[in-house]
């Protein structure tokens, strides 16, 4: 089976704040890491390969330093890595990110299955997987919690629907977005890390694509625009009680009693 896993490099921490006085964003300079949700997609791919044979290729879009997460995927067992990187892709929203990924994937040598994580920890939209499947004109299923059966033609999965579960059989080629906990991700292997240290990572840029029109990429290709960013508003009514444990607990108890919760 020919599997592509989409992975993303995200900031190592979510600590971003806006200074309420100056309006400047404060982001601590910290390491980046692989989006934690992508680990489940990669683990799913590796298990499928172990059971059914095939190749696992990881693909990422980002600045040149995003090669790091592809290397991390090699040390977990991925066979091949591709980075999509070009200044023209800067400022991409969901639509233009998905379109760019689809153009990159079309340059690879085909696939049976594309696996994505549930969402990223920096964008939190969970939208790129379904949009990518539209651009590739293939069926997709999100919130996959379990793989039931794999044949040469299709894969049967469980989709979690909050109150119900849908069992769906999907023809290849297709795209699945897997939930956290579908499988426990393995740890990177030191031996694999050493063995793949100098492994080449193919870089694709706009010039390699079928569609080279810059209007379809980056900011130009993004229908959504961020108009402004601001610190979250706080609620109007606040009471803050400080003091010794006993007195604040009494205030707390009296209040919830007044509100008829006890």
């Amino acid at each position: 089976m020919n599997i592509i896993v989409c992975i993303k490099q995200v900031p190592g921490t979510n600590k971003v704040e806006v200074d309420p006085v100056t309006g400047v964003l404060k982001r601590e300079k910290v390491d980046s890491k692989m989006n934690p949700y992508d680990l489940y997609a990669l683990e799913t791919a590796l298990r499928l390969k172990e059971a059914h044979g095939g190749v696992v290729k990881v693909i990422s879009m980002g600045p040149p330093q995003a090669k790091e997460v592809l290397k991390e995927a090699f040390s977990m067992g991925a066979d091949d890595g591709v980075l999509i990187s070009d200044r023209a892709f800067g400022g991409s929203d969901v639509l233009s990110t998905s379109y760019t990924l689809s153009q990159g994937i079309k340059k690879l040598d085909g696939f049976d299955l594309i696996l994505c994580g549930k969402q990223t920890t920096d964008g939190d939209t969970a939208q790129v997987g379904p949009e990518l499947s539209e651009f590739l004109k293939i069926p997709s299923v999100s919130n996959v919690t379990k793989l039931i059966e794999v044949t040469n033609e299709n894969i049967t999965v469980e989709m979690d629907m909050q109150n119900t579960v849908e069992i769906a059989k999907i023809n290849f080629p297709c795209l699945l977005c897997v939930d956290k906990d579908i499988f426990q991700p393995r740890l990177p292997s030191y031996l694999k890390k050493m063995a793949t240290k100098n492994k080449e990572i193919r870089v694709l840029s706009l010039n390699d694509f079928e569609d080279k029109n810059t209007d379809n990429y980056g900011l130009n290709g993004s229908p959504t625009q961020v108009q402004r960013i601001f610190p979250p508003e706080s609620n109007g009514d606040h009471e803050l009680w400080a003091g010794d444990g006993k007195s604040v607990t009494t205030k707390l108890y009296d209040k919830i009693k007044e509100l008829k919760f006890v």
Binding site: Y99, D124, T125, S140, M159, D160
Partner: peptide, 23 residues
């Protein structure tokens, strides 16, 4: 933003090449 909405809305947005804002 249910299980269905979170996959259907992006697929439709991509078909019309329009903007979609999540959550």
């Amino acid at each position: 933003a249910t299980t269905v909405g979170r996959q259907l809305a992006p697929r439709v947005a991509a078909r019309f090449k329009t903007g979609l804002t999540a959550d």
